[in-house]
Nucleic acid binder design. Structure first.
Lengths: 354, 354
DNA sequence: CTGAAAGCGCTTACAG
DNA sequence: CTGAAAGCGCTTACAG
């Protein structure tokens, strides 16, 4: 028998199946239905009633209403990831990491801020009114953090360059930049150019500043800079335009703020028949999958994207479990180590492709 | 004076500011507070009380609780966009389009399906339990639509190749493919290769089938195919590998399923010193910004990304307003026209770059 | 114009 | 093991 539904012809939809309807059909109370659907039956509901409820749930296609449930419990089961830029493959891996970590018990939803802008307080305030189980905020600005209300469980990711007492997970891009500078210095480079990324996020500033500072200490002059969006083609264009001058300045290496930028440089270098690394060394940040397969393969600072998501999810789960992260061994702020991956674009056979 | 808050030292957070607290401070009833915060004061609340409530709201930093409000009204103000793949610039424009259209009255949240998979029914069922004001589903599969519960307002986007009675907005990729085949036939091409995209979505199948069918009618042989993810580097690799054989087969044009693929082909063509379009014509789909600036500029089928988002948002808004889309002039299903943008990669100066 | 009351759909002490 | 009842925070007829 079908449950009673509102007629469709008048434009109304079938009535929502409620716990009360399930209870009526199963011949139990709504309280029992709740106990069964939330799995809290141990020592509280008889096997017989569990079976009756399960049957009714299936027959009616009942799904616990998230609104009612969340209101009663005081919080929902959604985890909101606030991010300025989701349209790149690096971030897709972060998302996957979070999803894997938080599991099916929580629902991951993304709030994408407008055109790469850093998240605003107003957006977060509205998000908080949804009573998310937790918030994950990627690349927050200092202003943003300063005005943040003392909200529920929240973990920051990618907070490069901003101070905060909130639990956070970061990529040690500065450490990676230092290794990169050392590597280039060891190879004897003294004159390099930097190809930066244009986004509102601080991580790029930190990469550049850390590299420039340490490069100088190691006797490397960063004689020129250019910047483009994270786009192979845009980077290729920028390099194409800048190269004649850079060459005149004696540039022997281009340090790129992302692998994507480096692909553009590599592409133009091939077109220009520049030998990499013989005439020009090229480096990136990220270690995207293709970086091991490019021609030549790309020397890059490996950033742990999926692990960034995993760690943030894990922190959040611990916060939800009521743990005081500040008191634990690994503290409330994690820094994921970067790794320098040396490949042919800086250290391969010097003249032309292998 | 600060509102009473729970102490922080015991781990609890400051008490949520409720409408009741605002009412108490303003000296009015919660009903009046609700009327004011929801802007339904016309002829119902005195100017004096409006002012009192506004003041109390500001002093306490009150934000209407979305859970309570949504439960009482029967639906929330969130619009959920379910999408298999957000990590590309095309989709970023779709998102922007939706956001602009639905405005500040609704909160746009994304549900990203696992690693490019098509959305599952289970995911949507959970999403529906949040009582979204509406759902926007990108690239649904036929299976998915078949099992879809008669849920609230929902608009499908990018449903290429699947039948459905639901309101939907589509890009006429097939029409674009036909124009492309005509264009290449008019230029005298008779032997072409097709570089497809590997994703779970049907739009790529539709592009390819429409092109191949119409090409055949126009006397063009599609003699070879390759496929890669939507990635410049991967496409470049695939072309690099396939080209010797394709050249032997007499291929004079490579039709790419996205501009991104075409960038990869263009890149390798330059490395190989192939003249485009003299020795090889190259085409794409999308008309991403860079396509006008590449060397040579790319002939492509322009797809209206932002307009896809706008139109879907507009349909949803009308659904929410109770309109019966099936009865209106433009029907419940929109098809956004594609446009063939002819540039240098097929029709420029025949030998080498201009 | 105003407020008391019912109700949205659930969960959770509580009494039995 | 079970169910009646209170409560989560709002909104909306309804009576005044």
């Amino acid at each position: 028998m079908e449950p009673a539904t509102n007629p469709r012809h008048d434009g109304t939809r079938p009535a929502r199946v409620t716990a009360a309807m399930v209870a009526a059909r199963a011949g139990v109370s709504p309280a029992t239905v709740s106990l069964v659907t939330s799995g809290k039956t141990a020592g509280r509901v008889s096997a017989e009633n569990i079976a009756k409820v399960d049957r009714a749930v299936n027959e009616l296609g009942y799904v616990v209403d998230s609104l009612g449930s969340s209101l009663a419990r005081g919080r929902s089961n959604i985890v909101i990831l606030v991010a300025p830029d989701v349209s790149n493959p690096f971030f897709a891996r972060v998302i996957d990491g979070v999803r894997e970590e938080i599991g099916a018990g929580f629902q991951l939803l993304l709030s994408v801020t407008e055109a790469g802008r850093t998240p605003t307080l107003e957006v977060v305030r509205n998000l908080l009114s949804l009573r998310p189980a937790g918030l994950l905020v990627d690349a927050p600005s200092a202003d943003f953090l300063a005005g943040l209300p003392a909200a529920g469980p929240m973990v920051l990711l990618d907070t490069a360059g901003v101070e905060s007492a909130m639990p956070s997970v970061n990529l040690d891009v500065a450490g990676g930049a230092v290794m990169l500078a050392d590597h280039l210095a060891d190879l004897g480079h003294t004159t390099v150019a930097y190809l930066d990324g244009t986004t509102g996020t601080d991580t790029f500033r930190v990469r550049r500043e850390a590299f420039c500072r340490h490069a100088r200490e190691r006797g490397i002059d960063v004689v020129a800079q250019a910047e483009t969006t994270i786009d192979v083609a845009a980077a290729a264009d920028a390099f194409d335009t800048a190269w004649p001058q850079w060459r005149r300045m004696g540039v022997t290496a281009v340090v790129c703020s992302t692998d994507t930028h480096a692909y553009g440089v590599l592409q133009e270098a091939r077109v220009a028949r520049l030998s990499v690394p013989g005439e020009l060394a090229v480096t990136g940040f990220d270690d995207l999958p293709y970086s091991a397969a490019s021609s030549p393969a790309l020397t890059t600072v490996r950033l742990q994207a999926a692990e960034l998501g995993h760690a943030a999810g894990r922190q959040l789960l611990r916060l939800l479990a009521g743990e005081d992260l500040g008191a634990t061994a690994d503290g409330h702020s994690l820094m994921l180590a970067s790794e320098l991956v040396v490949r042919g674009s800086t250290a391969g056979s010097p003249h032309g492709r292998p």
